[in-house]
Amino acid sequence: MKQLLILSGKGGTGKTTIASAFINLSKAKAYADCDVDAPNLHLITEQSSEPRKTDYYGLPKAEINPELCIECDRCRQNCRFDSISVDKIYKVDPFACEGCGVCEAVCPVDAVSLKPAVAGELMLYANEREVFSTAQLKMGSGNSGKLVTEVKKEIKTAMVDTELAIIDGSPGIGCPVIASLSGVDMVLVVAEPSISGISDLERIIKTAAIFGTRTAVCINKFDTNVGNTEKIESFCKKQGLAFMGRIPFDSDAVKAINNGQTIVDIDCASGAAVKAVYNKTMKLLFEEGGG
């Protein structure tokens, strides 16, 4: 099974729009949404069955038992994350607590303990034909590489026989991106023709290079700034990055998405452009990639 990861330096470039079109075009039987901070892919891919849900545990959080607490203030004084406050009783702010365990260790009366905390939920839609793995982090539990790893693991648990898996990656360059990158065969970066888009593209290319993963680039909404589009193309040439094509800004695309359709479900300019990008990408992934 070949894994194609679709990434962008920042959110809002159209990564999910393009990923959903690719899933539709390839009839991919395995796909995943690794953008666990703000997953969107499920909004546009039709799922017939209810998902299998699994709680995802992050770092444990401290809890203070008010019946045992003698208000010695040691936990509050020693917390580096300002997560303990006093308002009649001593309390832990679960959003600030990093689960380091210092408060538990300094408490003279064992009133503080670390408790497992649910940080998100994994959802796996699977039937005989296809499998879709996604997850949603809870508020205040951002940026988890471990959850991304779990999402990817879930696709493998469902024994679907397929040649291609498409993964919608996380934006940014942090640890969830690194977790998304691990083990994939190729990365397609969706770039935007803006000054900040170019700086984001450079950063993501650097990250992918660390893994030695083959990287290709396409430009979305290219006609919103043709000058910058040309800059990105020449950047790709200089860096030896495969260029997969340009996709125009298209108000029909917004309409399709709002109807829960992918842009290749309707006859529109962006859909046609994505088809060309898709064909080129598949050729690179399967024919020129070798084993």
Binding site: G11, D37, A38, F95, A96, L137, G140, S141, G142, N143
Partner: peptide, 9 residues
């Protein structure tokens, strides 16, 4: 920062 993580809080 985008999102609703602790860093946004």
């Amino acid at each position: 920062p985008p999102g609703s993580a602790c860093i946004v809080m």
